[in-house]
Amino acid sequence: MFNFFGKGVEPSYGQALDFTLNLETLSVSDFDRNALAIYPNPTTDVLNINYRSNLTGVTVYNGIGQEVLCRNTEVSQLQLDLSKLTSGIYIVKLASEEGQHSFRVVKE
């Protein structure tokens, strides 16, 4: 005779699992959004990005998540040419030594 777990109803000896899970806090760098200036938004051609320290990279994604522009940089002031992109909403991902930040930009 079996119960709903597929085991017999007679008492039996089984196998026990014993393990330890060590959890540590993750260190996440903070991207200071207060030190970030992005203008104009919405934009037609050029998006200006200013940050307090050097940006190491910028990536632009379209509405369905496809990468449409990617650039490695080492500057704190960047002019991003979006003139070749079609009108729509894009996600811009910035990277610096401090961390990463993503924001939405509207291209007219």
Rank of each mutant, 00 (worst) to 15 (best):
M1I: 09
F5H: 09
G6I: 05
G6F: 07
K7L: 13
V9K: 14
E10K: 14
E10R: 14
E10I: 12
P11C: 06
P11G: 11
P11M: 12
S12G: 11
Y13W: 10
G14S: 14
A16I: 13
T20H: 12
L21T: 15
L21S: 13
L23P: 09
T25F: 08
L26V: 15
L26S: 10
L26I: 13
L26D: 06
S27I: 00
S27C: 04
S27D: 01
F31G: 08
F31C: 11
D32Q: 12
D32I: 11
R33K: 15
N34E: 14
A35Y: 08
A35D: 11
L36Q: 10
L36Y: 08
P40Q: 08
N41M: 12
P42W: 10
T44S: 15
D45S: 15
D45P: 07
L47T: 05
L47V: 14
N48V: 10
I49R: 02
I49E: 00
I49A: 05
R52Y: 08
N54W: 06
N54G: 07
V58F: 08
T59R: 15
V60Y: 02
Y61E: 01
Y61L: 06
N62K: 02
N62S: 01
N62T: 01
N62A: 04
N62L: 07
I64H: 02
I64K: 04
I64Q: 05
G65F: 08
Q66E: 11
Q66T: 04
E67T: 14
E67I: 15
L69A: 10
L69I: 06
C70M: 08
C70Q: 12
R71V: 04
R71L: 06
E74T: 03
V75R: 07
L80S: 06
D81Q: 04
L82G: 02
L82E: 02
S83P: 03
K84M: 08
K84P: 06
K84G: 06
T86K: 10
S87K: 06
S87R: 13
G88P: 01
G88S: 03
I89M: 04
I89G: 00
I91T: 12
V92S: 00
K93S: 03
K93Q: 02
K93C: 00
K93M: 01
L94P: 04
A95H: 07
A95P: 00
A95K: 09
A95I: 02
S96M: 01
E97L: 02
E97N: 09
E98D: 08
E98R: 00
G99Q: 00
Q100Y: 01
Q100S: 07
H101W: 07
S102C: 09
R104F: 01
R104Y: 03
V105G: 04
V105E: 06
V106A: 04
V106S: 02
V106R: 00
V106D: 03
V106G: 00
E108Y: 12
